[in-house]
Structures are given as structure tokens and as C-alpha cells.
Amino acid sequence: MDDLSKSQMFVIHGVAAVGSVAFASALTYPLDTMKVLTQVASSSGKQLNAAELLLRILTLSGNSGLFSGYGSLALGRTLGLGARFGVYEIITAFYKDGLEDNYVSASDALLAGMAAGAVEALISSPFELIKLREQVSSASYIPNSTFALDKGAQPPLISRLLSGCYPDKRSLNQYVGLISTLSTKNTNVTSALLEYPWMMTGSGKPPSVCNVRRPSDIISLEGWGALWRGLRSGIARDSVFGGVFFSSWQFLHQAMLDWKAVGMDPPPRSDEEVGPLSPLFVSIAAGLSASVAAAASHAFDTTRTRSQCTVLPKTCKGKLVTTTGCLFK
């Protein structure tokens, strides 16, 4: 009977945690969208403000554009936060083993939080990549392709690799004509250009993240490794955030316990005898800890965001490839 009661309590806590994460993510998601777009679109000479970004999103995608990619974030954050707090509790359990009370020092919380943040980065990276590209697409104008296929004709292989793009033979001939006049060791200019098929689309640029945002497109064009692009900066960000958050929280929590213990008669011998703290003050302390941690890790967050907003096609011995092998040989 006790085992059944414990199982039910575990399920209830799990459902409550998932619901809380989903609600909090939905409540703050428009702010996250504005943050991501500011990080991606701003440069040293051009700083976009919130009003411009909000107007652009509402014009191109409507109100739903503020929540583009929310499903990926909710799922990734649920798994990531579960891993963060789970790893933290496991590590701090070793710190508290053999101690008379359950005290964890701020330095121990810092180390445990950094390890927990690294695990969180590994788990949540693919979901953040998909979420970010959906957010960028919500504020981007995506023109329709003017290429028309004959009735019953199959789209060329390149269109399966570059979503929404089709070969433009005239553009390719123009590139060859311009480059062939230059002195070069590579006499086969056409074959060299074919190694970069987006040159055939007329833009001369790699495909936009707006055209490579679905998981199948990302894996096909960029490979499985793209789901963990920017992992080093992501680990640095989440490690710094986790370490600063848990150490700050432990410091503030201990300070609140000491403050409450003042004047108690008899003086408490351990933190458990102090009693529970006010939920309001606990929430404020957690918010302050998260704010300090976010400020400390923001530079790494910007670095990772910009690296994930770049399309880098995978290569096979210098050739662009698809999931079926080398496209051009």
C-alpha cells in the first residue's frame, strides 16, 4: 500500500512539474522570441529595438509568430530541467552523505550546478536548434519559388536537398563565364561550382535557415551533428547558469533560514528545526538567483544562438552530400 502511495505521489509530482514548465514557458515565450531575434539580427552598427521586431513579427506571421517553435521549447525544457535538477540532487546527495544535517555549501552547489548544466545542454540542444529556426522564420519574408515543373515531371535531385530551391542553368552559366576569365589552376570551373549547388539557385549564398528548419531538412542537408551545433558554447552557458543559479540560491536560502532563526527560543540545532520559509520570499530568491545566472551566461547564449542560425551543409571528402551519399562526384 505504501509503495502504491509513493508511486501515485511520484506521478502527481511529475505531472505538476511538466505542467508548471509548460505554463511558465508559454508565459515567457514571446519574450524569448524577442531575445533570439535581437541576438540574431543586431550587429555593431545596427541595434534593433523591441518595437521594430514586434511589428515585423505581427506583420509577417501574426500573433501566432510570437509562439513559433513553442512545442520544441516545451519538450526540450521539460527534459532539460528534469535532467538539471535530477543531476544536481544526485551530486548533492553525495555531498550530504554522512553529515548530521542536509547542509550544502555554496561552493558545493556551484560545482554540482555546473555539472548539471552540462548534462542539460547535451539533452536540450536539438530542441533549441529547431525552436530557434522557427523563431527566425516567423520574422523572415519567405518568397515563393517561381520555378514551374512540367506536368508529371519529377523535381530535380537538388530540390530535395535545398528545400524550395531549383537549379537555374542561366545563373550557373553566368558564374562560369565570369570566373573562367580568371587565371586559376582549376580548369574545370563548372565541376568546381557544382560542389556548391546553391550557386545554381541564382543567390550564390547557402540556403536560409527559413528553408532548413524541419528536423528532416536539417539532418538531410547538415547531418546529425548539426542538432548539436554550438555545443561548446551551450555547455559553457548552461554550466555557468547552473553553477551561479544553484550557488546563489543556496546562499540566499541559508541567509533566509538564519534570519528566521534569530530570536527563536531555544535556538534551532539544524536547518530542519527552523521550519518552512515563506513561499513568496522563496520565489523572490529563486528569481534573483536566475537573474544573476542569466546575466552571467548571456554572452555564451548569444554565441550559441548565432552559431545555430547558420546553415553549414555536410561534406563527404570535400563534396556536398545527401542522406543517400555524395551528390556530386
Rank of each mutant, 00 (worst) to 15 (best):
Gly177Ser: 15
Ile179Pro: 00
Ser180Asn: 06
Leu182Thr: 14
Leu182Trp: 07
Thr184Gly: 02
Thr184Tyr: 00
Lys185Gln: 15
Asn186Phe: 06
Thr187Gly: 15
Val189Asn: 02
Thr190Met: 04
Ala192Asn: 06
Ala192Glu: 14
Leu193Asp: 04
Glu195Thr: 05
Glu195Asn: 13
Tyr196Thr: 14
Tyr196His: 10
Tyr196Phe: 10
Pro197Cys: 07
Trp198Ile: 07
Thr201Ala: 05
Pro207Met: 01
Val209Thr: 11
Arg214Tyr: 09
Ser216Glu: 08
Ile219Tyr: 00
Ile219Thr: 01
Gly225Arg: 15
Ala226His: 03
Ala226Val: 02
Leu227Tyr: 10
Leu227Thr: 12
Trp228Pro: 09
Arg229Cys: 09
Arg229Glu: 11
Gly230Gln: 04
Arg232Thr: 15
Ile235Arg: 00
Ala236Thr: 07
Arg237Ile: 00
Gly243Ile: 07
Val244Pro: 09
Phe245Tyr: 15
Phe245Lys: 14
Ser248Gln: 14
Gln250Ala: 15
Gln250Asp: 13
Ala255Asn: 15
Met256Asp: 03
Lys260Arg: 15
Lys260Ile: 06
Lys260Val: 12
Ala261Arg: 05
Gly263Ile: 13
Gly263Trp: 10
Asp265Val: 15
Pro266Glu: 03
Pro267Val: 07
Pro267Lys: 10
Pro268Glu: 02
Ser270Asp: 12
Glu272Trp: 08
Val274Gly: 13
Leu277Gln: 14
Leu280Ala: 14
Phe281Arg: 06
Val282Ala: 11
Val282Cys: 06
